[in-house]
Amino acid sequence: MLSRVAENLYWMARQIERAENTARLVNVNGHLHLDLPAKARTGWDPLIVITSSENLFRQLYGNPTDKNVVAFLVSDPRNPGSIVSSLAAARENARTMRDIIPREAWEQISGLHAQAGRNVQKGLLRPSRDEFLRSIIVGAQTIVGMLSGTMSHDVGFDFLVMGRNLERADMTSRIVDVRSADLLPDLGGGLRPFETIQWMSVLKSLSAYQMYRQHVDQSVRRVHVLDFLLRDVDFPRAISHSLGEIEACLTHLPNNKDSLNVIKRLRKLVSDADVETLEQESLHAFIDRLQVAMGDLHARIAQTYFRTNLPV
């Protein structure tokens, strides 16, 4: 498989996954808003920090308001991470690989991009936002299913799965971060009861609530939710599961030693985390470390497989 094609497959999967998870991110914040009493709400600007786009946002909009943050994340073509931009980039990537991607999957990718563009106003208005975000999530999941069900599970597919899972692990960590301490006020005193509701929101935004209930014999509490989203090996949006998927793909590929080492490091980081004590600041710092390591994993994969060079 050509390095360029492998790279395109990897990025296409990442961009589709990013669109889906940005929809989930906006969704979880929307629900938190509904759940919290007015004095505890933090508004929408934490999402700018979580998506690491402070500089770009400040350049484009200046001060964050609820409205412009949502527009920035959903519809702004100048934000390469917005839902609309991610889908456009995924479609453009897919277009260069029409010979590789099954026709139905291509039509689905192209269709989701067109549909998102057509309905983008819905995503900006409060009453229709939920419906819009859900349609993005369902559309992205349809593409994942279509590719899995119609494309040969060959080397190219490995790159697709790696791209998807790395992006997913990264975004799951960011969604957990929404609840971390720098960004939300310390819910001391009379606000404790709301804590459970908030963690339920996080689970729901990751479609994880049902699976959590089935597999965790515990009430919804921070420590158990964190443990589930970080370390569950069966739930497909849990970080450990995603890392396992990437690891499995890498074992099919040549020259995988360095990448596997980074995975090993990441897994250790996750398994060593003491979720009991991961409160507030330490949770945010931990997630930062996790994201840096995931960045290393990407760099290692890119270096090994996308930049094949002549021996010098």
Binding site: R4, V155, F159, Y305, R307, T308
Partner: peptide
């Protein structure tokens, strides 16, 4: 996607090398 080495042979860059 293509490269020519110092022995003037043509290669393509693939994930296998």
């Amino acid at each position: 996607d293509l490269a020519v080495d110092d022995k003037d042979r043509v290669f393509m860059r693939t994930v296998q090398g």
